[in-house]
């Protein structure tokens, strides 16, 4: 009976997931951003990175993730707000983008959010940086959460260079 119960839960979950999105929410200053939870591989505390020469300012360097070299993008710097001065309290969210693994440096990871896909708003036209880096905006508990376009965060490093 218990096994059946679990299966029911599971099917509930899949049914629900068709219309909802689970996000990992993190913050830069007071603003909350989110990425889809399925892309997140790991969350780790900032522990330094080896700087890379001759690359964009917002590429903080590379770290060793169990034998693989993973580049770290400073999301604040990517938004054009200057380099983060990271401490041990800063967080690196490791994600997979396409077939690559990257890390983004953020101030803190706050929550796992479940939002309805219907609640996603388009990014208001105006600033090209916003429309380029955000896929959309959702409201959660009355607060705005920006959905990060990871591909844009990463590919910018190439095209801008």
């Amino acid at each position: 009976m218990e096994a059946l119960g679990i299966r029911d839960d599971y099917s509930d979950g899949t049914a629900a997931s068709q219309n909802t999105l689970q996000l990992i929410a993190f913050s830069i200053d007071e603003q909350i951003y989110g990425v889809e939870i399925t892309t997140v591989r790991e969350i780790r505390a900032w522990n330094g990175a080896t700087p890379l020469p001759n690359t964009r300012e917002y590429v903080r360097g590379v770290i060793n993730l169990r034998g693989t070299i993973v580049p770290i993008f400073d999301l604040r710097a990517r938004f054009g707000d200057g380099k983060t001065n990271p401490t041990k309290n800063h967080v690196v969210v490791v994600m997979s983008v396409g077939d690559k693994w990257i890390g983004i440096l953020v101030d803190a990871v706050s929550d796992i959010l479940t939002v309805s896909k219907d609640d996603i708003h388009t990014v208001p036209e105006g600033n090209s940086v916003d429309t380029e880096l955000l896929n959309g905006i959702v409201t959660h508990d009355g607060r705005m959460v920006g959905l990060i376009d990871l591909a844009a965060v990463v590919s910018g490093a190439k095209t801008d260079a």
């Binding site: 890379l52 001759n54 590429v59 590379v62 693989t68 070299i69 993973v70 580049p71 690559k100 490093a157």
Partner: peptide, 27 residues
């Protein structure tokens, strides 16, 4: 020898990366 291009891109003057005994990446 580790590839930088695997997760990032080629960088001028750098042939790749490697992981040192202390876990840090060296270029």
């Amino acid at each position: 020898i580790k590839s930088l291009e695997e997760n990032f891109e080629r960088i001028d003057g750098i042939a790749g990366g490697t992981i040192l005994g202390d876990g840090n990446v060296a270029l």
